[in-house]
Nucleic acid binder design. Structure first.
Lengths: 233, 233
DNA sequence: CAGTGGTCTAGACCACGAT
DNA sequence: TCGTGGTCTAGACCACTGA
């Protein structure tokens, strides 16, 4: 057997993947039932189920009761990214992390943000503008709005020792969120911060989080042109 | 019981998540063992295992034999993106998809690409430049290199009816790949295609795939500024 | 060494959904 | 309707790793 593996469900997974790649089961093909595969591989159906479920999670298999398991016709590439805490990302690159709080005030959020977060546009939120640095050089800029109705303690936190992101992770739980990647032109502030030409491209990560149905925070992080987000398939 | 759920392992998952969010088990806290939780919830240990394993996959729990299960101290945001076939993405937006092959030739790859893909820089590859359109308007530009040593059939395919991506999905299996997101300035070609100012920002998806250890294809897809990639946490 | 999670098994019941 | 996957259970053995 070419697919040596100590863990049975993983060896089943490998063999199934091998057959898919080798076109033994081409796109659209119907696989044998779990029971049949269990008999073939000499293991319990539970083990086959675990293997097929893992593959189905990657989008390569399409499983439906009664219809059976098919090789996906349009295998969507499903990529998982880890969005680390900025400090850890910088340190993982071998640099010394530092951050500076550039500006801080309480005020009404911009109308578009109030709409996006579904908050009262007249209620003041806490706005923080910060700069993340690697070895003393600008690494990313951050503009953050915090919903003081949900996180009142933020008012008493200076955010000079600890970044807002790290503080929020510890003090303000969130149940779900949304992340958006995009490219845009640097604002004049960003361009000068990054010592880039006016109108240079920046990579933007926009992130909003909620605790149940209550908005917690929204942040826009801008990286200079050479920044990339990478993952493996 | 607030955590109603027909499926037991999912109700265990919800209850554990609830306790994490409610700081019953704050970051760093040690959870009871699987056996203890199984006794508390009145279910089999297998069921608790399934629930905790699912949570651990999101990065919220840290599990180790003997050490037990702990709430992660630095919960990395783990986001999964679906990178669909362009046709489907455009159609999902309610537009009519179309694509045009702009240029096609065989030649040696750029040196940087040959290095990245680890191919012989003297062996010709197939280069395709294409434009993806939504309702007749430019949606994205694509520059693709195909390794003819691995996919010789590509030479005989006109790529006028079917996009290279869709054709490759059907005819050239891949076992793994790499995806990189970045922001950069539009090339003059891209700027004129998108009717944007010279040097405008574009969002770039760079993707390379391998079949086992043999490089299959590399593609750079550029989107105009208003394009975003979004996911939920 | 010993405690904890990781996994396997055999059998069972059930929900979904194609026909 | 009834075949298929989804899940649960009870018990078991084992791999890893902290003390």
């Amino acid at each position: 057997m070419s697919t040596a593996a100590r863990v049975p469900w993983q060896s089943v997974e490998r063999e199934v993947l091998r057959r898919i790649h080798a076109r033994v089961w081409p796109p659209g093909a119907l696989l044998p039932t779990e029971a049949e595969l269990a008999a073939e591989f000499g293991c319990a159906r539970t083990t086959v189920n675990r293997a097929l479920r893992e593959i189905a999670e990657t989008g390569l298999l399409d499983r439906r009761r009664k219809a059976g398991t098919r090789v996906a016709l349009h295998p969507v590439a499903r990529a998982t990214f880890d969005i680390p805490v900025m400090r850890r990302e910088v340190e993982a690159l071998g640099h010394v992390y530092d951050h500076r709080l550039l500006e801080r005030f309480e005020g009404p959020p911009p109308p578009t943000l109030a709409t996006r977060m579904d908050v009262n546009p007249d209620r003041a939120m806490l706005c923080l503008k910060a700069l993340h640095q690697a070895d003393g050089a600008p690494f990313a800029t951050e503009v953050r709005w915090i919903n003081l109705g949900e996180v009142p303690d933020a008012r008493d936190e200076p955010f000079d020792d600890i970044s807002a992101n790290e503080w929020l992770l510890r003090h303000a739980p969130y149940t779900h969120g949304q992340i958006t990647f995009s490219a845009t032109r640097a604002t004049p502030d960003e361009a000068s911060t990054f010592a880039a030409a006016p109108g240079a491209a920046v990579f933007v990560i926009d992130r909003m989080t909620w605790n149940e149905d209550r908005p917690v925070t929204q942040v826009r992080i801008a990286f200079p042109e050479d920044y990339t987000v990478t993952t493996t398939l």
